[in-house]
Design a protein around this nucleic acid. Structure first.
Lengths: 359, 359
DNA sequence: TTAGTTTTCGTGTTCGCACACGCAAATATA
DNA sequence: TATATTTGCGTGTGCGAACACGAAAACTAA
């Protein structure tokens, strides 16, 4: 374990000098700075975060902005837990994570929650860039105050975010296509169900659909790819009727693809016979969706590892703040294929953490 | 933030005394101990783990015993890297991981490497219990010296290991069966190829085979399940011929299941036509196997997340040593389904770590 | 050359805790 | 009562890094 003291001795300078070059504090001649830097490189030195934290006394605040979650739509609970886990691990090294939530359908609450987060004077912000126009304003503010920021889950280009942590939606959709075709190879048609606002809003969903369709196109598979847009993917009789009648009209449909996290809402509100006569492929390991996998109504789920998204984004940001290292600008987490059989082993990290944290 | 110093002042004793009651070091009168304890309770004091770690400086050695790896059989490289990552993270809180390797086919080297590991006076040992009889002796020795131990990757019952970290082999095999049937539903037969010594030795492989077969049995799928035992799964013309002639004799075979990590060895040594006329399902994300996925010769791989096995086992053991907490006795990691399309996003943790660590 | 500046760097203290050392009071032994 | 032994507890140092303070060295200007 190399210490500052060791570097200092090696370079024939004092610890204070090494400290100065380490933190770009200035006041060091070019010559000695070069000398110290060379030794720092060659010894592969990195500061001991423990000792550093002790001496600094909680210097870094990181603000995390994510949509709030409800029981009915628990998707965002997992990233929250992942952030919490990272935060538990890191409070030991003087990193303080502050959470802010917003309503994912309300631009105003998005902005407000951001403004509140800035009041905590964060050194960095991790957030889900839900609304593009509003994000532009926020980013401008942060760049003025030289606050680093990282995009979580939703990828938007054209910003100087340190990185994006999430999934490659296109490929995930492509794999959904493959899985769909595997379960129902003889189908004449596949149906994609999305909510109306997902057409413009969250472009992850559009990318998944593009990927899904491209699986069939690029493999020259002749099937009809149908698309049904529902006003709102909530369990209402209206939704149920719309889907039901669509399916009777299009008898050739062998499987349904739901590119959002709402597959359980749909499956649970439909007639059991209808459900079991089709193959269902959807996204995200929410409790409700996993239940559908287990009881056999859904064939495959693709998980974007939301817990890990939360956890990793914090770890990656901290690594950047502490060591000024960023692995890549796009950090794509695995595309997890879940089935009835392996779903119980999915996300054990989250389960272990929840269990531990309850106490 | 309450400090030991604060407690001491409050109780009218010195910091040393508080320290003694905190660590049950003895040498404190009942009266003062009670007084201090009361204040500890009421202030909800907990020691600052940063400062504690700094002051303790290398109190725990953990020995890790794993098979060595070669380019041709790189499976064990990933757990090594996972251990290394954990070890990097933990070295600055005074945890020292020492690695020992052995030849997985040589009992003698297994024992020897264990004996060497004991010389480092570890507080705990994480190891792969390759040979049962030898493991019994080792365990006895550790229990005499009250060293905690944890099984990695290979699960053996009847020991007082703190936990097992690995995969549920039976279920993994069952899923392999499902995937096989999905890709080749019209097959009359499926073939399982294993090496002769895997019949007795590594029971993970037997469990995978049982799971594989049970998928067809419990779903009443009528196929013939064939089994071919090869002396040694190394790329030789003898192996190639044995398999080739077996396949010509059994023309109904629609897919081949390789329950070990050697699927690439087989696929690469066979005639290309033969390979592409069959569906191949295998285990483990070794570089060679992943290459076969990418070039299309293999349809599915199941990964047991070897990197995570190494990483998590260390983290879990450290949590136990530091906080005396063990989540469960069997810690089953996810059963990862890999395809051509998602394999590149597999194990990004390992990739990021390798990239970082090269420098 | 000398006084005044500025640049460059060494020293010392602090963070909260762990643990060794050793002194004093309490108790035991003669 | 004097001496030996045990028990209870205070003090001091170190862990590795951050940062303030001020001294020495290098320059500048007179």
């Amino acid at each position: 374990m190399v210490r500052i003291k060791d570097i200092a001795k090696e370079a024939n300078v004092s610890e204070g000098t090494v400290d100065r070059v380490l933190h770009n504090r200035g006041g060091v001649s070019k010559k000695t700075e070069a000398k110290v830097k060379k030794i720092l490189e060659s010894t592969n030195f990195s500061i001991n975060p423990i000792a550093s934290a002790l001496a600094m006394k909680n210097k870094h605040h990181i603000a995390v902005l994510m949509p709030e979650y409800a029981d009915a739509d628990a998707f965002w609970k997992a990233p929250h837990l992942g952030v919490l886990k990272a935060s538990e691990e890191l409070k030991n090294i003087g990193i303080n994570i502050v959470n802010f939530k917003f309503d994912q359908y309300d631009k105003q609450s998005y902005i407000e929650s951001f403004q509140r987060s800035l009041k905590s004077k964060p050194s960095a912000v991790i957030f889900v860039p839900m609304f593009i126009e509003e994000t532009k304003q926020m980013v401008e503010q942060m760049e003025n105050e030289t606050i680093d920021y990282l995009f979580l889950n939703v990828d938007v280009d054209g910003f100087r975010n340190k990185a994006f942590v999430g999934q490659n939606s296109y490929t995930a959709g492509y794999i959904a296509g493959k899985l769909m075709y595997l379960c129902a190879p003889k189908s004449l048609a596949f149906l994609t169900i999305q909510s109306r606002d997902s057409v413009r809003g969250n472009n992850a969903i559009s990318n998944r659909i593009t990927g899904f369709c491209n699986y069939f196109n690029s493999n020259n598979i002749k099937v009809e790819l149908l698309n049904l847009k529902i006003e709102d993917l909530v369990a209402t009789t209206k939704m149920q009727q719309t889907i039901q009648s669509f399916l009777t009209e299009h008898a050739g449909v062998g499987g349904v693809f739901v590119p959002s996290s709402r597959i359980s809402t749909i499956v649970n509100s439909l007639n059991e016979q209808v459900v079991s006569s089709l193959q269902w492929v959807g996204f995200d390991n929410t409790p409700q969706n996993m239940e559908c996998l287990k009881n056999g109504s859904v064939s495959f789920l693709i998980s974007q590892k939301p817990f890990d998204q939360g956890y990793e984004s914090v770890r990656i940001m901290v690594d950047f703040l502490l060591k000024n290292k960023m692995p890549e600008s796009k950090i794509y987490l695995p595309i997890d294929i879940l089935t009835k059989e392996n779903v119980m082993y999915n996300d054990i990290n989250q389960k272990l953490f929840e269990k531990e944290f309850e106490k």
